[in-house]
């Protein structure tokens, strides 16, 4: 389902390219947003080609609209297929969300009600992606800000059934779990306890913003700040439970200097190492 190394990666930003090349190899992999590499040539492909020479790559799509009602965009699927052929990434992942409507692309990961109808649609779409790309994909749990009364299936059960029907793996975004749980005033640990962790092929960590509304806290998944302390705690609990796996630190907005991102990655690595140590003692 994924050939990413167990270890720590970061989201690749063009601005960090020189700093990455100048520093000793420290990341186990880099993740790129597929849509940023769909131009014909120039700097993006030159950088990715150089990066790919000595690093594992996770190709992360943000625009396929797997949770949308319409058919998948065949042209977009073909663009993803071409990227997979060219760069042979160790993993491909996308989101449990939708982002296109008709001919309009909305550039956000929009929510869907969880119903038997949407379950069938999402599974059909994942089947189509996996067939087109010739590989298993990872599906990421979303950050959500609303709930829908027509939802009749818990998100964890929805994901478990997708895994069962399609054979895909899951990308567990711990920040998204924390954000959604806070917004829904539910317990993130209860969500994680019910999450089908046996299918997890990668973990995401990222920062969020916090606001306050009359009805309670509003957390927004912004990827523009350090990973929050409660998210680190949940992450350590997950790692203690499932052992080491590929872990990614995302920072997409207000991108900091490279050393700041390195420090976040180092902290994630220390959590993996501590868990590895405990596992070694236990065995």
């Amino acid at each position: 389902m994924t050939h990413l190394p167990s270890g720590v990666g970061v989201g690749f930003k063009s601005a960090h390219f020189e700093a990455i090349r100048a520093s000793a190899r420290q990341m186990d992999f880099f993740e790129i947003h597929a849509e940023n590499y769909m131009g014909a040539g120039g700097v993006p492909h030159a950088q990715l080609t150089a990066l790919r020479e000595d690093h594992a790559i996770s190709l992360h799509g943000v625009g396929l609209s797997i949770g949308g009602p319409g058919p998948l965009d065949r042209d977009h699927l073909e663009r993803l297929r071409a990227l997979c052929l060219r760069y042979q990434p160790e993993s491909f992942s996308e989101h449990l969300a939708w982002s296109s409507h008709g001919t309009e692309y909305l550039n956000d990961l929009l929510p869907l009600p969880y119903t038997p109808e949407t379950l069938a649609l999402v599974c059909d779409h994942i089947d189509e992606v996996q067939e087109a790309l010739g590989r298993r994909m990872l599906l990421e749990n979303p950050s959500t800000y609303l709930m829908f009364e027509q939802s009749s299936i818990e998100e964890t059960a929805f994901l478990r059934e997708i895994v069962r029907r399609t054979g895909c793996g899951l990308l567990l975004d711990v920040n998204n779990v924390f954000v959604s749980a806070a917004n829904q005033q539910r317990d993130p640990r209860a969500y994680l306890a019910d999450f089908p962790v046996e299918a997890v092929g990668e973990i995401h960590l990222g920062g969020h913003d916090e606001d306050h509304l009359p009805g309670g806290a509003l957390l927004i998944d912004t990827h523009g700040s350090p990973v929050a302390e409660p998210v680190w705690t949940l992450f350590a609990e997950v790692i203690a439970r499932i052992g080491a796996c590929p872990v990614l630190v995302e920072w997409d907005n207000d991108v900091p200097e490279w050393p700041v991102l390195q420090a976040e990655a180092a902290r994630a690595r220390s959590v993996l190492n501590a868990a590895g140590h405990r596992h070694a003692l236990a065995s």
Partner: peptide, 17 residues
């Protein structure tokens, strides 16, 4: 349709999207 939120601030939460 179907958007719900406790204490009725669904409008503000939809505004995030």
């Amino acid at each position: 349709p179907g958007a719900v939120f406790c204490d009725g601030d669904a409008d503000l939460r939809f505004a995030v999207y």
